[in-house]
């Protein structure tokens, strides 16, 4: 195994963890409501700016730890606002939701440009995240290891929430059969709202992670959101396991492709890969079995 391969393998894992954090929220609400929030990338951006602002108030190592809940709550609140004012009204029209939330995305990006400037702001990672380890000739930056750990943690917490808590039970019920859940007295609208806030919150948290890697710009979300959309397309409807697997596959594919070709060709290959994947498994990596015709 040469060092380049191992290095790209690590980069792939790092990319996968970011794709996963960006895609989890999308996949959750897509499984539940069949809608995609095109402004989800701006939740990443919002998280990044909230991290920057938190560090202005509380500098140092504590700041970055504090930034995580701040970004989560801030992005969740913004997500809740978008869901309750816009997405709820459009619930029966998924393609129109796509367009309307794209409008939100444009407004949020321009607002960030006006508020914080087009160039972006720099979040200084604390010292314990600035270093790197060397293992078998591969440099592992601490910040990227931290992000992988956070992604695993978020995934674990989400699994625990969905499988063990009462809220998770309600979410799974609505996911399986919305009509039946509603008939059994579950407030499905409230479940939709809660899941949307949760998903947006995870994106806000992902924004903090992006801030550790580079400057936060008004368009920072855009560079991760389109691969995240592909993760959702490939993951399979309403399956967190499928989303995770697909994030790992696409992250590794994107990084390993870069051994042979440059970034732009790798991006094209990623798209071709997803289209080829659809030929084999149009239902996604993991498909929840259903007898419904139009699942």
């Amino acid at each position: 195994m040469d060092a380049l391969f191992l290095n790209q393998l690590f980069n792939g894992a790092s990319l996968a963890s970011l794709y996963l954090l960006a895609a989890l929220g999308l996949a959750l609400s897509f499984g539940l409501m069949r809608v995609i929030n095109m402004a989800h990338g701006e939740m990443l951006m919002l998280g990044g700016y909230l991290a920057w602002m938190t560090l202005l108030v509380v500098p140092g190592a504590a700041g970055i730890i504090l930034a995580i809940p701040v970004a989560f709550v801030g992005a969740a609140a913004m997500g809740g606002l978008i869901q309750s004012t816009l997405i709820r009204r459009l619930s029966a029209r998924p393609l129109d939701t796509l367009l309307a939330t794209w409008g939100v995305s444009l407004i949020l990006q321009q607002a960030a440009r006006d508020l914080f400037g087009a160039i972006g702001v720099e979040v200084r990672a604390p010292e314990w995240l600035a270093g790197s380890f060397t293992l078998a000739g591969v440099t592992l930056p601490s910040a990227r290891l931290f992000i992988i750990a956070i992604a695993a943690l978020v995934l674990g917490a989400l699994a625990l929430l969905l499988l063990k808590s009462r809220i998770g039970l309600l979410v799974r019920a609505v996911n399986q059969d919305r009509m039946m859940a509603s008939a059994s007295g579950i407030d499905v609208k409230l479940v939709d709202f809660a899941v949307f806030c949760l998903g947006s919150g995870i994106a806000g948290l992902a924004g903090v992670m992006l801030a550790l890697l580079g400057p936060v710009t008004p368009s920072v979300g855009q560079s991760y959101i389109i691969p995240a959309f592909l993760v959702v397309v490939m993951g399979g409807l309403g399956s967190i396991v499928g989303t995770t697997a697909s994030a790992i596959i696409l992250g590794l594919f994107a990084a390993l492709a870069q051994i042979f070709v440059d970034v732009s060709v790798a991006q094209m290959l990623l798209l071709v890969f997803v289209i080829l994947f659809i030929q084999v498994r149009p239902q996604g990596v993991i498909a929840v079995k259903s007898r419904q015709l139009d699942a």
Partner: peptide, 26 residues
């Protein structure tokens, strides 16, 4: 493969991104 709707829209957007990036890089 009977993939359509939202999925199709997302894939076409990825295509637009890939195409523009490819042109810029060459």
């Amino acid at each position: 493969r009977r993939v359509g709707g939202t999925y199709f829209a997302l894939i076409t957007q990825a295509m637009a991104l890939a195409f523009a990036t490819l042109i810029i890089s060459r």
